[in-house]
């Protein structure tokens, strides 16, 4: 089993994972990605790295869970993670929607107050 997987694919996996991790870090450093959203991506890259180094990992875990076809486990895990993250993004989106609405309302109210004050002053000046 140990020698079935050629080394070249392992090197590519490790390089790809590291590259992805580097990309995430760069986004955080540049301030384009907030830390709270980066955590999930860092965990993802760590998982990728783990399986890139631990060649038998997938087979071992699949056997443990009773999954007959190990690659199916990858899809299951990946799709599950994607769905959870999408729901998370929808929640964030809804929160921002509410905040934007409140900001817009507050702005309109302030503008009205300011406008009234200005026009009162103009009347007094006359």
């Amino acid at each position: 089993m140990e020698n079935v997987i050629p080394y070249s694919i392992q090197i590519i996996s490790i390089a790809g994972s590291l590259l992805f991790m580097f990309f995430i870090f760069r986004l955080i450093i540049k301030g384009k990605l907030r830390e709270e959203y980066s955590i999930v991506w860092i965990i993802c890259t760590l998982a990728l790295l783990l399986f890139a180094f631990w060649r038998n990992g997938l087979d071992v875990i699949a056997k443990l869970l009773g999954v007959y076809y190990p690659p199916a486990l990858i899809f299951l895990g990946a799709i599950f993670a994607i769905i959870v993250f999408l729901v998370h993004l929808s929640v964030v989106n809804s929160k921002q929607h509410k905040q934007i609405k409140e900001l817009a309302q507050e702005m309109a109210l302030l503008q009205e107050m300011l406008g009234n004050k200005m026009s009162k002053k103009e009347n007094e000046d006359k």
Partner: peptide, 11 residues
């Protein structure tokens, strides 16, 4: 009228 609200974005 001078009493009105003008929303900056469509709500």
């Amino acid at each position: 009228t001078s009493t009105f609200l003008d929303l900056p974005i469509n709500l």
